[in-house]
Design a protein around this nucleic acid. Structure first.
Lengths: 350, 350
DNA sequence: CTGAAAGCGCTTACAG
DNA sequence: CTGAAAGCGCTTACAG
């Protein structure tokens, strides 16, 4: 810790008081232009570096924002993080990052650390299994919180996706392709997002009068490995499903991969749909049909929601934000060509 | 900024001085166990939160570390970031993150911001085109700097990869598979890493007495799109190369994808090798042969190097660290089966 | 083993 | 338009 010149040093060099220097650094219009220039010149000459920590302590404010992310191995969350960091930086905030790797204890630890660091606000994508009470606890700290992707009750600002609608849309697409036996590769346990996605699938099936065999709901890890396991399970079923809806693109990548290993082609042997539209989904073999809600747009929304909270006074706070983006289906090769309807078309091409 | 109890409040509640409270919080052995317990109890009762910013200001130290990353859309750097963040957190440091998206101006801005935030040290993967002088400038700030992946001269701590050796290894592997016309998809411009990789390729070719046609060095974007462009360029050459060495896995993914679009299979139509061994390389179709130096291991090395600098006194500083991991080649399907040597094998199997 | 005092580098009323 | 003074929440010699 080599310490450089302080406003005191600048004040001495410029022949003014440190109050004046402070005001100049804040670009206060109260200081005469001439004086201000003299001060800026002295600061430059001395190689002055503003000490934001000291300013925050004295001013009882903070310009850092904590970003708590559950899974950076999923590129979707990386896209989200990048967008959020960009928007916050543009508004003069610095991002304190922490990765929880879906571990609730790690999450507790990093939240404590961020509180000690005196963050002005928090954006969090909570780890699976986070108790709902955590949102209340954070509120009790007096730190504004915006949740992304994973809701935790209706009284906390949340930016996410309408998963139920999205999975209805995806299921409907598969039905339109002529599929009637459609599997779901995700997990059966009760986290909100998983439930919504499963529910969207189930209700679209019901709406079209299609029965769902319980074994079609394949409980797997939400990773490529899980996708591979799902394919093996599906090919053991008789009659076997001709399409699979995946919890997310990570699972779908595993599905595409296992099909390839078996010498089969997604889209022909089994129609595959993912969710998230990660950048890589465009370059898988074959390219992946998937639900897109726009990671960048969600990141921008989440940051703006937080910035609005920070800039509003106690009295003028807007009501709780609950924003759920409506996803679109991006149709690519992985879901086209295997259903009975389209199969007749591809047979004609043979 | 709701502010909670301070050490002064705890002191009052526990009936001691704030010096004593401070010492207890630092777990100083100088305080009697009984007194310490009384203080801790009072802190708990009041819901005390340590203010690290105030402590850092007074103690003239800092417990945050800046992490400047050039490209988070490349999963390799994400793996690196995750490893670094984990190690730093374990040592009680907080990570301030910034993403430059390969933009030198953004990088300048975030470095200034981190300096104002009073980071104890910096870990940086510099943006392409960063002037070498930047390392000296950061040193002049008195902030220890560790570079990852991209060296900038020999007098700054650096943790990277022996790219020249790696690309020699990869080239040799392709030659052993019977290939003699091997292309290189990267960029021709003069950044250190690009030069090393190209050089490794060229020297292995030379060593085996194989001529390199200038057009085989395909200058493309270092993205999947670049990989796709490379494939199109290669298939226009006559006689065309039968193998391609890619700058990194991002490029290789594009190569695999374009081959698939053309109805061809990597490994048969064209042998493909990448670099980085990102997690996804295991699940591409076909799986990707690639160079692995271990993102996690590199991240751990980089963090430890920085931690060692922070913990050593001025006099006992170790000499500059220049660590270059020796990569291994992970052979998967994308590079096997297309060379003349192995082709005879596969013909026998037909 | 504990306390009184000084001070880290800033900001912010307040006074002139 | 500018300055003197108080203070943000801590730590650290120093004294006892």
């Amino acid at each position: 810790m080599k310490s450089g010149p302080t406003i005191q040093d600048i004040a001495a060099a410029a022949g003014v008081s440190k109050s004046t220097v402070s005001l100049v650094l804040q670009e206060s219009p109260r200081i005469k232009a001439e004086t201000a220039e003299k001060v800026r010149e002295a600061a430059r000459a001395l190689g002055y570096v503003y000490n934001r920590g000291a300013a925050n302590l004295r001013g009882r404010r903070s310009t850092t924002i904590g970003m708590v992310i559950n899974d950076l191995t999923n590129p979707f969350f990386v896209e989200l993080l990048v967008a959020i960091e960009r928007v916050l930086a543009q508004s003069g905030y610095t991002t304190l990052m922490a990765h929880t790797a879906e571990d609730v204890e790690t999450q507790t630890r990093v939240l404590r650390s961020m509180r000690e660091q005196n963050v002005a606000g928090l954006i969090m994508s909570p780890a699976l299994g986070t108790p709902d009470a955590l949102a209340d606890e954070i509120r009790s700290w007096g730190i504004p919180l915006v949740l992304v992707m994973r809701p935790m009750g209706v009284d906390v600002d949340t930016v996410g996706v309408d998963n139920t609608y999205g999975f209805e849309l995806a299921t409907q697409h598969l039905i339109e392709q002529g599929h009637t036996r459609i599997a779901f590769a995700g997990n059966r346990k009760g986290y909100t997002v998983a439930n919504q996605r499963r529910q969207g699938y189930l209700s679209a099936m019901a709406e079209h009068g299609l029965a769902v065999d319980d074994e079609w709901i394949v409980d797997v890890e939400l990773t490529p490995k899980g996708g591979r396991d799902a394919v093996r399970a599906i090919f053991d079923m008789k009659p076997r499903p001709t399409a699979v809806l995946c919890y997310n693109d990570q699972v779908a990548v595993g599905v595409l991969h296992e099909l390839d290993r078996m010498g089969k082609r997604a889209g022909k042997a089994l129609a595959v749909v993912g969710c998230d539209n990660v950048i890589a989904a465009e370059h898988t073999n074959p390219p992946l049909t998937t639900l897109s809600a726009g990671a960048d747009r969600l990141g921008v929304m989440a940051s703006r929601t937080l910035l609005a909270r920070l800039e509003a006074t106690e009295e003028q706070q807007a009501p709780v934000v609950q924003y759920f983006a409506v996803p679109e289906l991006v149709v690519r090769e992985s879901s086209v060509g295997a259903g009975s309807r389209s199969r007749s078309g591809s047979e004609a091409a043979l």
